[in-house]
Design a protein around this nucleic acid. Sequence first.
DNA 1: GGCTTATTCGAACGTTCGTTCGAGCCGAGT
DNA 2: ACTCGGCTCGAACGAACGTTCGAATAAGCC
Lengths: 174, 174
Amino acid sequence: MRDLSRASGMSLAGLYYYFESKERLLFLIQRHTFSTIVQRLKGRLEGVIDHEERIRIFILNHLEYFLANQQAMKVLSHEADVLKNGFGSEVAAIKREYYRICVGLLEDLKRAQGLEFATRIAVLSLFGMMNWIYTWHNPRVDADAEHLAGEMGDIFLGGVINGNKNREKTPARK
Amino acid sequence: MRDLSRASGMSLAGLYYYFESKERLLFLIQRHTFSTIVQRLKGRLEGVIDHEERIRIFILNHLEYFLANQQAMKVLSHEADVLKNGFGSEVAAIKREYYRICVGLLEDLKRAQGLEFATRIAVLSLFGMMNWIYTWHNPRVDADAEHLAGEMGDIFLGGVINGNKNREKTPARK
DNA sequence: GGCTTATTCGAACGTTCGTTCGAGCCGAGT
DNA sequence: ACTCGGCTCGAACGAACGTTCGAATAAGCC
């Protein structure tokens, strides 16, 4: 809170005039952030029918926000699940909606192409790929969101579509 | 430190008799953890020549340790890069060696199969997939390390081997 | 038994943290 | 001119933190 006070130019007590506690302030930041990501995603998905393209849009939307707000996302990733009961559940609901959208995109792809893979593990692997970026991405060295989304989309889509073909002496898995 | 004192049964001051500071204690834990992972990996890779199998071993080794020490890895993931200069560089060196091993495995696969993808992004995506597990894995619900390593191996190997075939109207990328 | 050395601990120190309080400032309304 | 409500702040409070210190205990050796 003292850091925020210094950075914003407002006194420490002044912050508490607007935000009743540090926890509520974190809650507002998290709610705003995750709501924005979900809202932008919905807008971008409208009218797109190709299943692979929809997943690529999901990845690009996610990475763009993460890289544009890298410092913030670093904190938010570390501060996941620290909110107490009341605050935590509302943020958790938004995250759950986001997760469910991704599950839906994958289920659609599975149905359309007759694929077989574990949706939950695939979705959480994808989130891992994307979220881990805050630990290594250096804007001066690494490619931009669009390029990275392309590469990750290649790996992920190639994986869920052709994945189990690479098991030696193993039939398609249930 | 007070938590450790309570959990270990030794007084707070007693801890400082054995570990000169909280930072040095964290350093010892990190060094031991990452050294163990690298050491086990090297043992398991010995004698295995198939490139895909070697990457699957890498994934299994990583996930097994992460799931067997989930609470610890949750902390270590959060405490990455908090060590000051002296301590930090030694741990960073071990991590870099681990990273380089993974890069080597992928480069071998690329060469053997004539593939084209960005190694750095692929490696860091794989780390993301695997490391993110501490945020969602529930031992009572989710599969064990072996099963998860199989699924993630399918996705990752399928992705790097067949990835760019899924780009619409796009040639293989450089 | 005495003496030395290793181990353990309660109590405290100084700092940082989240938060609160009371007093001051300032512009709008009467 | 006076007041009132919104806004801002310096200063402090109590708790938690990493760390230290001196004394108490235990263990090994003569």
